[in-house]
Design a protein around this nucleic acid. Structure first.
Length: 572
RNA sequence: GGGGCGGUAGCUCAGCUGGUUAGAGCGCUGGCCUGUCAAGCCAGAGGUCGAGGGUUCGAGCCCCUUUCGCCCCGCCA
């Protein structure tokens, strides 16, 4: 196959006769001479159909060619006149004097043209046109590059790509499953995997030692800009490895991927989960925000005359506060209070601080002691914002983010951080303990002896600029520890045997210690390319209603298909 | 499940306090034009104003219902 990249055609090709295939991009007919661009995925070059040129077939081209027709052209590369050089394209110094052309396929007038900015509905319905544009084309190339680097990297380290089932078993916790009815076992269902988690652990029990996979995961939950019902994980697991081994292995890959896009990542920081919550109010701290960290000022106001605070503290709430440098107008402060209310706060206290001077409608209620303690907590100038409603750290963390973005307090570049040692359990809405990470995460400490609520885990999430790029952990590799975790979570023996029996079996017959990690490939790509939505790196994404406008999936099926599966639709 | 924004020509959008025949740019069709590259100039075609109902003498505009798209909360171990 002859591979001539359009972009590589330059003056070195002058007077050479070449043949190119591609699409007709912008036609410019001057009457007597017609220009058009030939575009394919490798670039664009100007075609010239000249009436005065022997064999140029100007009138044939004018009559026959339209935008986005697919053609094969033969012609001679020639240098453009000095004053006709186009600096905007790499091939701008040359053009192809077309001697003959063949229309490989015609195109109807298009709803929109490749590269044109168009709304999501049209873009997804005519995705092939959208993808034909240079931006989407380069996004697809970027994803290919990420996957190729990943495969080469893991192969070199002796990781094996072991595919795991797409038709598998529904597991009780986590996201809603996509279900696939079974024909041979009517009334039973497969689930599409939410991740290959259990299979990769079984592979460790099998002695694979080093596994990786670039694989699809499915979760039937509501969509967001960074969430699709199906997405891609770069998944890995290794035996006999410590947290550090795994983080280093993942980090080297992430660095290589960023380097392939000319980004040098700064060394990732390590931050304990606790600190992330205390300083950022989030398990996904955004270190690119140039705004004061959260502070706990609960103790300052525990006995305050300012009842908004003291009575909230009495109810067991904490008071979280941060300092935002710079001045706020009255309107901005009012907006800030509105923001806080929208997030579910009863209100928001603001205190302007300049040197030792504190100004605010509420500051006259504060005692001297309280004022001094505030000055000590926040030595800088600006506005102190404080909130005491419910989960005040989470809420103030959100506000902090909103203000920083609104006021342009965001640093350029990537700020990676490992968030480590998340608690093993948290209380859910029903008051039961559930796993913060997942129930297969190994505890730090003794699951049998220690208070489960105080146990931390061998977990590590990689966060870049406030976005979770991936997460992993060292796993529990002993059956009796795994069983203990299920028990703490209030899962009955019957249930964990039924749902996780195969995992417990695998752990019971000589399973090595192991751990692993999974990167969200699309999220990584979006960060890398500076895009807003993972739809931009997925060739055929779904809308927010999990619908595909291109294929019209999901769709109804025939009565016969349902019958074969032993299914009947409920009325209405 | 909830909050917000939006749906007007093929595409991107404007449309005032409810008032005559709903506009623009791009694209499309035809004509002119020999150096453009988002070509230019002239002319033309193109509309169920997402759908349904209501208020009104009169609705693209107001009200209700519904549907689709986007952003967010819940949810996503």
């Amino acid at each position: 196959m002859k591979a001539l990249s359009v972009n590589s055609i330059n003056t070195g090709y002058e007077r050479r006769e070449i043949e190119l295939s591609g699409w007709i991009d912008s036609i410019r007919d001057h009457g007597g001479v017609m220009f058009a661009d030939l575009r394919n995925r490798s670039g664009k070059i100007q075609l010239v159909f000249d009436a005065s040129n022997k064999g140029g077939d100007y009138s044939g081209a004018v009559a026959a060619l339209r935008a986005e027709f697919v053609v094969r052209v033969k012609g001679t590369v020639s240098k453009r006149p000095e004053d006709a050089v186009n600096k905007k394209i790499p091939t701008g110094e040359v053009e192809l004097k077309v001697m003959s052309f063949e229309i490989l396929n015609e195109a109807l007038p298009l709803p929109f043209y490749p590269g044109e900015k168009v709304g999501d509905e049209a873009a997804l319905k005519y995705r092939f046109l959208d993808l034909r544009g240079p931006d989407m084309m380069s996004n697809l190339e970027a994803v290919d590059r990420i996957m190729r680097i990943t495969r080469e990297y893991f192969a070199q380290l002796g990781f094996w790509d072991v595919p795991t089932p797409m038709l598998t078993k529904s597991t009780p916790e986590g996201a809603r499953d996509y279900l696939v009815p079974s024909r041979t076992k009517a009334g039973s269902f497969f689930a599409l995997p939410q991740s290959p988690q259990l299979f990769k652990q079984v592979l460790m029990a099998s002695g694979v030692e080093r596994y990786y996979q670039i694989t699809r995961c499915f979760r039937d939950e509501d969509l967001r800009a960074d969430r699709q019902p199906e997405f891609t994980q770069i998944d890995m697991e290794m035996s006999f490895a410590s947290s550090t081994d795994i983080m280093e292995t993942v980090w080297d890959l992430v660095e290589k991927i960023f380097a392939a896009f000319d980004h040098k990542l700064p060394q990732a920081l390590f931050m304990k989960f606790e600190e992330a919550m205390a300083s950022y109010g989030s398990d996904k701290p955004d270190l690119s925000l140039n705004i004061g960290l959260l502070s706990d000022i609960t103790e300052i106001f525990r006995k305050s005359e300012f009842k908004v605070f003291s009575s909230s503290v009495e109810k067991g709430n904490k008071i979280a506060a941060f300092l935002c440098a710079g001045d706020f107008s009255r309107k901005e402060l009012d907006d800030a209070v509105e923001d806080a209310k929208k997030l579910g706060a009863g209100g928001l206290v603001w205190i302007k601080k300049s040197g030792d001077e504190l100004k605010s409608p509420v500051v006259k209620i504060f005692s001297d002691e309280e004022k001094n303690a505030l000055r000590k907590k926040f030595p800088g100038d600006g506005v102190i914002f404080a909130g005491s409603t419910g989960d005040s750290f989470c809420l103030m963390g959100e506000l902090r983010k909103i203000f920083a973005l609104r006021r342009g307090m965001k640093k350029e570049g990537f700020f990676p951080v490992w968030v480590v040692e998340a608690p093993l359990f948290e209380k859910n809405a029903q008051g039961r303990l559930q796993a913060v990470h997942h129930p297969f995460t190994a505890p730090i400490g003794d699951i049998f002896a220690d208070d489960p609520r105080s146990l931390k885990s061998h977990s590590y999430d990689l966060v870049i600029n406030g976005e979770e790029i991936g997460g992993g952990s060292v796993r529990i590799h002993k059956a009796r520890e795994q069983i203990k975790v299920f028990e703490i979570m209030g899962i009955s023996e019957a249930e964990y045997r039924e749902k996780f029996g195969f995992l417990l079996d695998a752990l019971s017959y000589g399973c090595p210690p192991h751990g692993g990690f999974a990167l969200g490939m699309e999220r990584l790509a979006v960060k890398l390319l500076g895009l807003d939505s993972i739809r931009d790196v997925i060739a055929f994404p779904k809308t927010q209603n999990a619908f595909c406008p291109l294929t019209h999936a999901p769709d109804v099926v025939s009565e016969r298909q349902l019958r074969e599966l032993g299914l009947k639709l409920a009325d209405e």
